[in-house]
Design a protein around this nucleic acid. Structure first.
Length: 355
DNA sequence: AACACGTGGGT
DNA sequence: TACCCAAGTGT
């Protein structure tokens, strides 16, 4: 800093960041009118999900559920159907539940305090900070993956960012940085920097507005930071998936309450077993005599912690019976896009050209 | 603290 | 290909 520079670093960082943001921010739909409801919806959708993925869901969702009241009074199944394909379906259930709470407890006026927001299901520390700063311009830090990356690089922090103590430290730093009266812009500027310049791999440091303040860049550590403990490799599972077809109906299963894809509609599955034929396995499971029509081929679906290697088998019931075991139902092909079916099973339908 | 919880895009 | 990891939360 030269003589006559009275600006302190924190303030300078904020000014550079805000000026850069004003020039370079993306034109995102939820930035048009950051009211509490639409900010909340966008934040729930954006959890662990890319902006480009969220955009079409965001438009459709707000069109169908334009207010807290409409959302609160909708059927859960319709909310889940609107969420279909986005993943992490507990977000949709929590969203629906939270809307009911906002309606009952706050007469549909979205709460604007940290304590009240944190009590709503689906709103954790990050989302509370994001909603308070973006929708209410209150000086709360919102520390997401972007901010963790930006700040850990700026201070050249070599500690593991998945540790609570490290997150806490970064939250404090961000909190101290928030400029007076500009919390919303600042939150978004920090995240935007992480999203478009301070990238996980090959950050574009040459274009960074706060490069002069970045200690990782100064030390040549920008490619090593942030440090994150590596996750356990996913388990590999081999399944048969049954497509039992009766005229235009497909036999589907409402999945059990808990666990992966719980309370979503799926297809009957069985762990592959080399000493049993799939038609026999599914016949036992479904209480139907089944005939194998053909194998529809294999497809893979990757979750964070599991990989499903699926062989889809088309089967035909040998007799027409209507008493199915608990949780199973015949669903007309044309109705399938109106019920919540996760991507893993959508892939099976595509494999067999059913849709 | 560590893991479950979806999906997709980038390298 | 395989791996990383994304505007995280709940348990």
């Amino acid at each position: 800093m030269g003589i006559g520079e009275t600006m302190e670093a924190p303030k300078d960082i904020c000014n550079l960041l805000l000026a850069w943001y004003a020039e370079n921010k993306r034109d995102l739909p939820w930035r048009k009118n950051p009211d509490p409801y639409s900010t909340w919806i966008s934040e729930m959708m954006l959890q662990q999900t890319r902006v480009e993925t969220v955009i079409p869901y965001y438009y459709r969702f707000l069109e169908r559920f334009p207010t807290v009241s409409v959302l609160a009074n909708a059927d859960e199944e319709e909310v889940l159907t609107a969420w279909k394909g986005l993943g992490y379906y507990s977000r949709a259930r929590n969203l629906h539940l939270a809307a009911k709470i906002v309606q009952e407890k706050y007469q549909c006026v979205f709460p604007n305090s940290y304590q009240a927001l944190r009590l709503l299901p689906g709103i954790g520390d990050y989302s509370a900070g994001a909603i308070l700063s973006i929708a209410f311009n209150q000086p709360f830090p919102a520390v997401d993956g972007n901010v963790l990356r930006v700040i850990s690089r700026v201070i050249c922090l070599e500690g593991d960012i998945s540790e609570a103590a490290v997150k806490k430290k970064i939250r404090q730093i961000v909190s101290d940085l928030i400029p007076e009266g500009r919390a919303g812009e600042f939150t978004q500027a920090l995240m935007e920097l992480g999203a478009i310049l301070c990238l996980p791999q090959n950050p574009l440091c040459a274009d960074c507005p706060i490069r002069v303040y970045c200690l990782a860049d100064k030390n040549g550590r920008q490619d090593c930071i942030p440090v994150r403990r590596q996750s356990r490799p996913p388990a590999n599972l081999d399944y048969w998936v049954a497509v039992v077809r009766k005229d235009n109906d497909i036999l589907m299963q409402y999945r059990e309450h808990t666990g992966l894809l719980g309370r979503m509609w799926g297809l009957p599955m069985a762990v592959k077993n080399p000493v049993v034929k799939p038609e026999k396995e599914f016949a036992d499971q479904l209480g139907l005599n089944l005939q194998k029509v053909k194998s529809l081929g294999n497809t893979k679906h990757v979750f964070t912690h599991q990989v499903w290697n699926m062989e889809a088998i088309e089967l035909m019931p040998e007799e027409s019976r209507n008493d199915l075991p608990q949780g199973f139902a015949w669903i007309p092909l044309g109705k399938i896009d109106q019920i919540p079916i996760p991507k893993a099973f959508q892939k099976i339908f595509e494999l067999g050209n059913y849709m």
